[in-house]
């Protein structure tokens, strides 16, 4: 017990909490795109993390092989995932708009395998590292914070802010919020739902691209990297209330803190186990998500 309290008040624990916060920023960004698409199109893209994976590859190859500056490479990565988002909608979801939700989910699951397979065929199974290091911020003798993580957090928070302003101030943003509340009457408002779906899928894709840029700075890319981010992203969205962007945002930080705190006391895997168990427990208490509005 004394050991436990020692650990709790240790300076490293503070570092852990901060790292959890920084990780939360990236997870928040990850869940944002998925939530946006779900809120508007009412489909869960199981293959969301695989789109991110292809974005990471784009950035890797443009920067490492073609020598393009990493910022421009990131821009191209975002362009690629935007197009992918459009394609996912137009080629698959478009034909399943009236199908049972679970079939839509399974179809994007099929895309997951397709994208993994394509990445394997095209890029092999090696782990590839962007090799960009920004060094660390030395807060004190004991606390080092990676600049990459800080940058990721700031960018993630920034894009959440931009999206928030877009959603609350613009006509399109209002339509995006409105459609999740009443799909059927959107034509009465003059909204072309098909176009709105496409637009949202493109934005969802672009957010995946941004997430790809941030993840590429921190993690190696390989065809199966989606499996390490995908499940956690869905769970964050469900925990926050599918389609509820504010809920997803907060849930991302709960998840990231649980993971890093679990990782601090045991292995990182136990951190994940802890987060998932809390997720399952939450679902029993609040099936509609932790931050669902009572209706």
């Amino acid at each position: 017990m004394a050991e436990f309290t020692d650990a709790l008040f240790s300076i490293f624990f503070v570092e852990t909490l901060i790292n959890g916060l920084l990780l939360g920023g990236v997870l928040a960004l990850l869940s944002l795109g998925l939530n946006l698409v779900f809120g508007v199109v009412d489909v869960v893209w199981i293959c969301y993390a695989e789109i991110i994976m292809l974005g990471m590859y784009t950035i890797y190859f443009l920067h490492v092989d073609a020598g393009i500056p990493v910022i421009i490479a990131a821009g191209c990565g975002i362009a690629v995932t935007t197009i992918l988002g459009l394609l996912v909608h137009r080629i698959v979801i478009h034909y399943l708009l009236d199908a049972a939700p679970i079939n839509q989910l399974l179809a994007t699951g099929g895309l997951l395998f397709f994208l993994q397979g394509s990445a394997m065929v095209a890029f092999g199974i090696e782990f590839r590292n962007l090799g960009v290091s920004l060094g660390s911020l030395i807060v004190s003798e004991d606390i080092y914070l990676s600049w990459t993580r800080i940058l990721c957090f700031v960018l993630a928070a920034g894009s959440v802010g931009v999206l928030y302003v877009f959603l609350s101030r613009s006509y399109l943003g209002a339509a995006i919020r409105a459609i999740s509340q009443d799909r059927e009457i959107m034509p009465l408002m003059g909204v072309d739902t098909k176009k709105l779906y496409l637009l949202t899928s493109a934005i969802g894709g672009a957010l995946a691209g941004l997430a790809a840029a941030l993840l590429a700075l921190q993690y190696d890319v390989h065809p199966f990297i989606g499996l390490s981010f995908g499940p956690i992203t869905f769970m964050i969205c469900v925990m926050g209330g599918l389609g509820n962007m504010v809920g997803g945002f907060l849930a991302a930080f709960i998840f990231s803190e649980l993971i890093t705190i679990g990782g601090y006391f045991a292995d990182l895997e136990w951190g994940y186990v802890l987060a998932f168990v809390v997720f399952i427990a939450t679902m029993f208490v609040r099936p509609e998500g932790l931050f669902a509005r009572k209706s």
């Binding site: 399974l106 895309l111 395998f113």
Partner: peptide, 18 residues
């Protein structure tokens, strides 16, 4: 890398089926 081809075809097949 040919090892990915089965996965790729599998994925396409599933989408088509659904």
């Amino acid at each position: 890398n040919a090892a990915g081809v089965p996965l790729l075809i599998y994925g396409v097949m599933l989408v088509m089926f659904i």
